[in-house]
Amino acid sequence: MTHWTLAGTPITSRLLLGTAHYPSPQVLADAVQASDTQVLTVGLRRLQPEHGGGNAFWQRVRALGCHVLPNTAGCHDAQEAITLAQMARELFDTPWIKLEVIGDDYTLQPDPFGTLEAARVLVREGFQVLAYTTDDLVLAQRLHEAGCAAVMPWAAPIGTGRGPQNPYALQTLRARLPDAVLIVDAGLGRPSHAALVMEMGFDAVLLNTAVAQAGDPVRMARAFAQAVDAGRLAFEATPMGERQTAQASTPTLGMPFWHQA
């Protein structure tokens, strides 16, 4: 399988996987293996001393041998996200950060202004910023120009599993940002959703709930991995153009039973 480059790192898998909401740590580990992912997202939350530190979870994640992508989930302004990113960099010893600045708690729609403000600061501080955003073209352009390692538009609100709500907007992003690393980050629910955006030419997808909350997360992880690969292969193969009218596949020349009157 050919590799691509994410934040300066060569990677073969085009599926990034979240670590939340699995039925058990073992199911998470099995799903990671089934997905062939090489990038896992993790979060950061307050630690109470009686919980003994975050070592147990962190050791389990490290044992999976993937690159770790910490997020700033739950932050509501640029300063919160910047501080959490700095804490994550020390804790996980990585400059990678999945930047999330939430603007609306009901839809979890990112705050475009806070996201861009934080992205500019974090890029200046040497972070490899993977910015969660909507499918707004101009914001994606600004994030790319700010030096984000990846721009990550949603397909639908986080955790909804509704699939691409505005395929036209996603196609436009791909067309207008041909040199950016674009990863569809939220709202995918089925492997066909992943295949669809990969056929558009997106560089990768980031999933969590669609795998973790499936009836069988391990089999679903494998299904998504195959869909992502199929979608990418289809993009590289250039799908045929659509036609308005039917065109027979079987040659008409030599059709039996036809005789000149």
């Binding site: 909401h21 699995y22 993790v42 307050r46 979870f57 962190w58 989930a73």
Partner: peptide, 10 residues
Amino acid sequence: IDVIAPVTGG
């Protein structure tokens, strides 16, 4: 003061 640790996340 905030003290944070790794948790699961998407």
